[in-house]
Amino acid sequence: RRVASPRAASKKGSAASSSSSSIVTRSQRKRMHEQMTDDYLPILDLPNEIISNVFSSLGMKDRLRARVNKKMNAIELESKYHVKEVLIEERSERRDPGTIRWWDIRGQLITFYEDKSYSSHCIKIICQNVSIGKLKIELTGSSEFHREVYNLLKDFEIGHLDFGPVALQHQILKEMMVDSFFLDLTKACKILHIDKCDNVTPEAFHQVYKNMTDGSTRLIEFFTRSFAREKWITFLNFIEITFRRGRFFSNRDIEVCIRRSISGHDHLLIFDGSVEITIIDRSPFEQSGMKFKLHENRESLENAKNTRGLDKINVHAV
């Protein structure tokens, strides 16, 4: 509670003000009382919804800092809020104040420095009441802290989760990105972008695909840039489509198109019901890319099918 007056505060004799475990020192208290004036805003006299409204206009850092006492802490933890874009990054050096990055302007930054130690509780506190439009991860270390942070991602409510190339270069995430973790991530967000999925099996891709087609997941889009060619061929086999010597074989009601690229990396598009599968087919010695996109209405699906530059490919009966 607000300190109504120095006299009232001393009479209260709360744990914080009178016991040896007091957090505010005598000199701090003296300074605080000296600075107190009759004109103050008794924030704790406001209804919790209004305090929550104040919290909702603060950035994530200020919001967490504003947990200055038990009641403020309790209200912060209970009030839901939305952040449009967040970057969780790791840096080896303090940022040059003159360097302005895209994220500084458009999104909120959670920065960890390599020379400091952190508790994953900071992420746990955030994820319990925030929803994030787009979350990008650029962690670089490989400690238990990093593992805990990655594991907490599945507890977030995220629109678009983006593991860019920086994150996937690091060993701990490569190790963690196996079927179970991958499937957990697909349940946490609507759009999932993972640059590399070396250890994810075609069975897991198939599971995600099934979840998207039967509507049992929030996921509407998944994209990976780099994984082995034989994996998407195996995945197609799971959905009864065979790709052999540049030709498609299936008895299912699908449409297949190709978008030729001057780079030689053709895009193969398979329309299966309301799901569009895009495969970036590179040479057998290069990594492929794959994207699943669930079209939420017929107009979106028809627009995708009628995109300029698509040539239809025959699908041969088995």
């Binding site: 744990a15 914080a16 957090i23 505010v24 800092r65 200055v68 006492n69």
Partner: peptide
Amino acid sequence: KTVEEMREILQLECDFTE
């Protein structure tokens, strides 16, 4: 603002245990 500055502005005492 820092935590201490916030406490001063809002005139709220810290009632957390250590």
